[in-house]
């Protein structure tokens, strides 16, 4: 077995595991901002690992360039939209869980 195949396999398996972790997080975590955090894992780390794993298989060809572009664009756009989403959510009154707990604590202390 070639060394590139092993690298590809490692990257893909790791990426898939991260993806599933993020997916479970998105399903299970308690509030929007924590879920957004889990979503970020699948958008960046998982995508990065899977796409770069695939890149090892194409050698030097047009496909490698395309994969590289996909990777770059994903790494630019998905954090941007995540950022915009978080900002919009904050602006329209969604409060992070921690803040909610803090205000609750203060209320109880009074």
């Amino acid at each position: 077995m070639e060394i590139t195949a092993i690298i590809t396999a490692l990257c893909l398996v790791l990426g898939s595991l991260l993806g599933i972790t993020g997916g479970i997080g998105v399903y299970r975590l308690p509030d929007f901002f924590t879920r957004l955090h889990a979503c970020g894992i699948t958008d960046s780390a998982c995508a990065f690992l899977i796409l770069s794993g695939l890149m090892f298989q194409t050698g030097t060809s047009l496909e490698t360039v395309k994969l590289l572009f996909i990777l770059i664009f994903l790494l630019i756009t998905s954090p941007t939209s995540t950022h915009a989403l978080a900002k919009a959510a904050l602006n329209s009154g969604e409060t992070p869980l921690m803040e909610q707990q803090q205000t609750q604590q203060k209320r109880e202390e009074r």
Partner: peptide, 16 residues
């Protein structure tokens, strides 16, 4: 106007 990051990224991506 409120989304500076979005605007910058858009300008970056549009040519592509």
């Amino acid at each position: 106007k409120g989304y500076l990051v979005l605007r910058v990224v858009t300008k970056l991506l549009l040519p592509f």
